Simulated scan of single mutants.
Amino acid sequence: MMATTHALWGMALAVPVLAVAPEFAPAAVLAGLIGGLAPDLDLYAGHRKTLHYPVYGTLATLLAIGLALVAPSTLTVAFAVGLAAAALHAVTDAAGAGLELRPWEGTSNRAVYSHYHDRWISPRRWVRYDGAPEDLGLAAVGAGVVVAASLEVASVIALALLTVSAVYVLLRKPLATLAERLAAYVPEPFVPYVPARYLEA
């Protein structure tokens, strides 16, 4: 799924905090946003493996939620929401396509790596590829939850992310071709840092 979809759903995870402990909501929303994006920092270093933990992340989230319930504070609540967003990101990557330049072709059997199982989880392709119309639909749901919560700054961020998502959806397939062409011009010393899917296309 799109990074923006993960970010929006991470922010949406913070909405229950608004109902239970509104004083922690701003920090929780920020943590959800960061947690939703953070796993994709491994884009150029073992994407969907280095920072993606679908099993361990979920277990860590349960422990963090327990801590936040026992000792609620800005730090513990934000930590729990951030971990939950990162875990949700890793888990939902398995619902999408595999690691490939053109995921709509369905040639990859690697969706996300499970360190617990020591193997790649196969893509379910419920969301056919990042930037598919159904991906935009999920982003819209996440944004809708945040906007409905009437968190002013968060609503502006959510709508901005949704706008970026819509533009990306329109350009998704041409961007794959552009990335492939640009990869051919990467100077030799930097080639090891280019994701293999761009070079193997």
Rank of each mutant, 00 (worst) to 15 (best):
R110S: 01
A111Q: 12
P123V: 06
R128Y: 01
G144Q: 05
S114M: 15
R124W: 11
P133G: 01
R125I: 04
E134H: 10
I121Q: 13
L138W: 12
V141K: 06
R125D: 05
A139P: 11
Y116M: 14
V127T: 08
D130I: 04
V112W: 03
V112C: 13
S122V: 01
V146S: 05
D130N: 12
S122F: 00
D118E: 12
H117L: 15
S122I: 05
S122K: 14
Y113K: 14
R110F: 02
G131W: 10
A111P: 10
Y116G: 08
V141Q: 01
V127S: 05
Y129I: 07
D118W: 15
V146R: 07
R128E: 00
G142V: 06
W126Q: 07
A139K: 06
H115Y: 08
S122W: 08
H115F: 10
G142H: 04
E134A: 09
R124G: 07
G137P: 00
D118S: 15
Y116A: 15
A143M: 14
W126M: 05
A139V: 09
D135Q: 05
D130V: 08
S114H: 14
E134Y: 08
V112H: 03
H117F: 15
V141C: 06
S114T: 12
G144L: 03
V146M: 03
Y116T: 03
Y116C: 14
D130Y: 13
P133K: 00
R119H: 13
W126L: 14
H115I: 07
V146P: 12
A139C: 11
Y113A: 14
A140D: 12
G131F: 09
A111Y: 08
Y116H: 14
R119E: 13
V145K: 04
G137E: 01
V146C: 12
V146G: 11
Y116R: 12
D130E: 04
S122L: 04
R119N: 08
P123S: 11
A111K: 05
L138M: 12
H115M: 07
W120G: 10
L136G: 06
R110C: 04
R128K: 02
R125P: 01
R128L: 09
A140E: 08
V141Y: 02
G137M: 08
P133Y: 03
R128F: 00
V145P: 07
L138C: 03
V146A: 11
W126D: 01
A143W: 02
P133M: 00
R110E: 06
Y113P: 13
S114V: 11
G137Y: 01
G131R: 10
H117R: 15
W126T: 00
R125V: 01
H117I: 12
S122P: 06
D118A: 15
G142M: 00
P123Y: 05
G144K: 04
V145T: 04
E134P: 00
H117C: 13
V141H: 02
A139E: 09
V112Y: 09
H115N: 14
A139H: 09
A139F: 10
R124K: 13
G137D: 00
A140C: 05
G131N: 04
